[in-house]
Design a protein around this nucleic acid. Structure first.
Lengths: 282, 282
DNA sequence: GTTCCGCATGAATCGATAG
DNA sequence: ACTATCGATTCATGCGGAA
């Protein structure tokens, strides 16, 4: 049995990435700090400086990614003074200029978005999941994210309250009931480029990360067992934890020592339980 | 009773728009031909020329829109040679440069999108609905697009504690009526910036109509009765038809004579039925 | 042992107030 | 004038405690 490696590295990703070999990573999936957000932990990046700040990292990511690999970037521009910032658009153009192919833009439809009411806009319920590639022939395992009826019924659907089902139904018109009957009629369904994951509402003492389902979905879609996954803005370690569970090798880079400790703890815990599980199953 | 005007104008919108008075339009909602699409009818615009082609129109739209008005642009970049084009991003930046405020990007989540399967991407289930404004204080009637929730109300009611119900009751004096109206108010919820409209699978000979719900939603949100609505790429006349039904004045511009005929026919039909209705009701 | 209820809390945004 | 901070708004979620 091959061993799964999970490396958590402390430091500035621009520097740490230099230590990684070129063409060694199959999937990069990450959520960098957005402009002017997470000031306490990351200092905050000014929107005007964002592209300039990100490009050196993009350069390293381009180097370490395999030609068949994929880079998924989760980001969303803020609204300020009644206007949307344009730095994300500029970043996409700049990354293209750097040599990346902008292959696709997935929409993360956040079912439970932040509440609020303003005179000029509604609640922001979506984020960008930008897909970049090095080459046109990248690896993609579409079959692995098809939704089998069993998994759906046992997993996500069970988590939805009856109220949610009713509400979605009445809101969207066609809604849940119809969709479910569709799924029942088929074995498996391909997803679209609009994906829905609930945000994590955690009472833990660290800032919110993306939900496990998000890296899980892209890891399924763009890697196979024993492939290498990289998250250069690891945060509290969601990506490495999920990769480990899915039997992918992974590397996470994080500049805040406390987060590195949390991420390492998750990995250790999982190793323990795997070890325990193996012993039992022998 | 004030009369609703519905004008369908034949011609190149760049030219026709010059005839409209400045600061005269409350809402522009339109879906221009996408690059390289609809070649037969519009000649097709090359992606690299798209911004250059659109900017003179944008200039006219900026002139005719009231300072409190809104411009909704429905557009989506195509995928070509396994890559997403960047002309929409460049258009947003160019329109900002032209003086427009980029206020918001709504996502049109298409529930029943075009079927198909590709090796490198999933079905495209969303389009951009870009909101631009001339000034930061634009008109917005959020209450008019609140979603009534039907069965969900039962869940809400159940969630109110018995104490709350009693307290409200004793406070209001008149009792039941006030409580119910409170609950009814609460049973409406504001939408988010992700909207769902079913796509039209119609057999009409216009290639890319948007569903009536789309202009209807934005007309509700950004105009009131007797306001002026403009669609400079009218196509088969959905926008003017909806505006007329909603008792808004409207102007549609279309370069293809056949479409102009179709759009006019819709307006005439509606006028007939309105007239007929009036006669009957007398 | 379930189920239910109350409550804190988020990658939010605006407008006002303070330095 | 320009930035920094605060209060108000709002709602899905998950947890803990209670019935």
């Amino acid at each position: 049995m091959q061993e799964i490696q999970t490396k958590i590295l402390l430091g500035d990703n621009k520097e740490v990435l230099r230590q990684l070999g070129e063409n060694s990573i199959d999937l990069i999936v990450t959520s960098p700090p957005y402009a002017d957000r997470r000031k306490q932990t990351y200092g905050g990046v000014k929107p005007e400086k964002y592209v300039e700040w990100f490009l050196p990292i993009g350069q390293q990511l381009l180097r370490v990614l395999k030609p068949t690999g994929t880079f998924i970037l989760n980001i969303k521009e803020k609204a300020e003074k009644r206007e949307r910032s344009s730095y994300v658009l500029e970043l996409i153009l700049a990354l293209r200029n750097q040599g990346w192919l902008w292959t696709e833009e997935f929409i993360w439809h956040k079912k439970n978005c932040y509440p609020g009411k303003w005179p000029n806009r509604f609640r922001d319920a979506w984020e960008r999941l930008l897909q970049f590639n090095k080459a046109k022939n990248f690896a993609m395992y579409q079959e692995d994210v098809m939704v089998p009826i069993g998994d759906w019924a046992n997993g996500r659907l069970r988590n939805l309250s009856a109220i949610d089902k009713v509400r979605d139904n009445s809101k969207s018109g066609s809604g849940f009931g119809k969709n479910i009957s569709n799924w029942l009629n088929r074995d498996k369904v391909y997803p679209t480029n609009v994906v829905q994951f609930a945000t994590v509402c955690n009472n833990k003492n660290h800032s919110a990360v993306f939900p496990e389902e998000l890296p899980e979905w892209f890891i399924k879609l763009f890697t196979k067992k024993y492939d290498w996954v990289l998250d250069p803005f690891l945060g509290s370690g969601t990506t490495t934890e999920v990769a480990q569970r899915m039997e992918r090798n992974s590397i996470g880079i994080e500049i805040v020592p406390e987060y590195v400790e949390m991420a390492k703890a998750k990995v250790m815990q999982k190793e323990q339980s795997l070890f325990h599980h193996n012993r039992v199953s022998i």
